[in-house]
Design a protein around this nucleic acid. Structure first.
Lengths: 235, 235
DNA sequence: ACCTGAACACCGTTCAAGT
DNA sequence: ACCTGAACACCGTTCAAGT
């Protein structure tokens, strides 16, 4: 009867369940609150029990990052490269927004998981099949990923829920400093003031830069570029 | 005479010296090896001595990040906005390369230091004075920073000293996996193979994407854009 | 095959005390 | 004003033991 306590026993521990719980816990309480101990508690289990399913915390984090990559939708649906890449970028940003800890983890993870490899393979495939020469595809791919990751990083650094709140915090933060900050950083003050009035839409901002980049990438295709649905020339 | 030991006493502890030592230690041994204890050891002092000069480890890290921003050269030298922004971007990347731990820290630092504020103020100033309307300047600024940070993040994630080494490691890593990875990720394999042959120049890659972005940003200026050295119209 | 208990080395940080 | 010593709560992880 000691078995039937207030908290019912969870089905069983396994790698997938551990990873899923870790992701959920990081989403809810932040990555710094995710420890082997708090995670174990989530299962009503002693910390050491986790080590049967993940080798160590590093591999746990690796697995978590790969779950984020697995959430990215890279079905092109027969669309042209530009709409496909655009959709993929928005999907990647969505995944990074749902799991704000992920971008901070990518910095130190060097062992890409299967979903990560698949994501990158599909991206390259999309570009190559659209007729981009190899080097151009690499350029396009590097630029796109840099922009997506960097935007997520900035968004997290600034990181406020509502745009109004962002402006307020920034304003009070600036206002507090020693000698008139308005004189020291007039252009920053303009940003704070203007964005405070108008509000700031990260999603819209993301798309502006994204379209800028996609238009630029289009220039990297060879001459027959504007003729859609035509196959690359066979030599 | 107990004062005159093998290790001569360092001049004195102060905030600047503590921060500089922390940066140097992180550069040499990596950010994860930088603890209050190892840093104190650098001065031949007990860990608690540091707390008279930095409030806690979080403020230490904040200060380190601001040192990196302070290394960025944003003197425009009377050049047009494009060359000025280009130069600034290369300088920022240089700073992030010299201090590879910095990009990983930016993720969690929310209190920008004076050098950080100055950097952003100067960037905005450069764009506004070049005639970019407010919203366009914000777009340009957001896109540029995203690209720079994201590129640094990727470079660190892949992070190998030499390009040859990068290709080798990637190849063996892929080769080791269970069923023929060549079939699962053919486009990734092409990247590994091609870049292994030709070598991979991060600096050149960075500039390709940067110029793509700068050309795109140019489109955000109003009609009189191509007429250099002309002042924005007064209404 | 899976989970537990006790222990170890290592963190950041506190507090009261020394000079 | 600056540094020290001892201690606390908290990490990831080990090892040997339980079932």
């Amino acid at each position: 009867m000691a078995e039937q306590l207030a908290t019912p026993r969870r089905p069983r521990l396994n790698r997938d369940r551990v990873l899923a719980a870790a992701v959920a816990l990081a989403d809810d309480t932040g990555i710094e609150a995710l420890t082997m101990r708090t995670l174990a508690q989530e299962f009503g289990v002693v910390p050491m029990a986790l080590y049967k399913h993940v080798a160590n915390k590093d591999q746990l984090l690796d697995g978590m990052v790969d779950i984020v990559f697995a959430e990215v939708d890279f079905t092109s649906g027969g669309a042209d490269w530009k709409t496909a890449m655009r959709k993929r970028a928005l999907s990647m940003r969505g995944a990074l927004m749902r799991h704000r800890w992920a971008i901070g983890l990518m910095e130190s993870r060097m062992r890409p998981g299967p979903a990560n490899l698949r994501y990158h393979n599909e991206t390259m495939k999309c570009l190559r099949e659209a007729g981009f020469p190899f080097q151009s595809a690499v350029h396009a791919y590097s630029a796109m990923d840099s922009y997506i990751y960097g935007f997520a990083l900035q968004e997290k650094t600034i990181g406020f829920a509502t745009p109004q709140e962002a402006a307020e915090v920034a304003e009070t933060r600036l206002a507090m400093q020693p000698p008139s900050l308005a004189e020291q950083y007039p252009y920053l003050l303009e940003v704070v003031a203007e964005l405070g009035k108008a509000g700031y839409d990260y999603a819209a901002e993301f798309e502006v830069g994204l379209d800028l980049l996609l238009d630029g990438i289009e220039q990297l295709r060879p001459e027959w570029k504007s003729q859609a649905h035509r196959r690359p020339p066979r030599t």
